[in-house]
């Protein structure tokens, strides 16, 4: 390789382009992953944070789910996984995954609007790809 600096330049260029792609990719698409408690804390201390896109994981509060008929709009409240007193309302305008119930852990991506309603663009339920249940539940 020593005899061919031009070739080395080519290799370095490929590495540089890939690094650049990864770098810009991360900085442009990265979102904060917060708990509801952290999100509420940020929104209270810094009102401008409301426009920042975030990802939040929380649990749907049973009984709060309602579907607005004819508008493809879903509304529910989620609470913090550890602190049940921290809650906020969510609006979501897309098809719900099959695994959604009104007692699931969900991961939402979106932003808090001016009225304090979380507008979710994506909703994932968190039971992951294990597809298994704990057989200990079968007891009793």
């Amino acid at each position: 390789m020593k005899k061919h600096p031009r070739f080395l330049v080519g290799l370095v260029a490929v590495a540089a382009v890939v690094t650049y792609l990864i770098w810009t990719g991360v900085s442009e698409t990265m979102v904060y992953y917060l708990t509801p408690a952290e999100l509420m804390a940020k929104v209270t201390t810094d009102p401008s944070f409301k426009d920042v896109g975030v990802k939040v994981s929380g649990r749907v509060i049973p009984g709060t789910y309602e579907r607005v008929e004819g508008q493809l709009l879903h509304r529910f409240r989620v609470r913090d996984l550890e602190d049940p007193s921290v809650t906020f309302p969510v609006e979501y305008r897309d098809a719900l995954p099959d695994t959604f119930t009104d007692d699931t852990e969900v991961v939402l991506e979106g932003r808090m609007d001016a009225n304090g309603v979380f507008q979710a663009n994506t909703l994932l339920t968190k039971c992951g790809s294990r597809y298994e249940a704990a057989p200990e539940d079968l007891k009793g």
């Binding site: 792609l21 990719g25 990265m30 979102v31």
Partner: peptide, 18 residues
Amino acid sequence: GQKVSVGPPFFQKVNFPI
């Protein structure tokens, strides 16, 4: 200490040119 997330947009942005 700050949890962040990169999703499909990241992988698409990087892997389309590749």
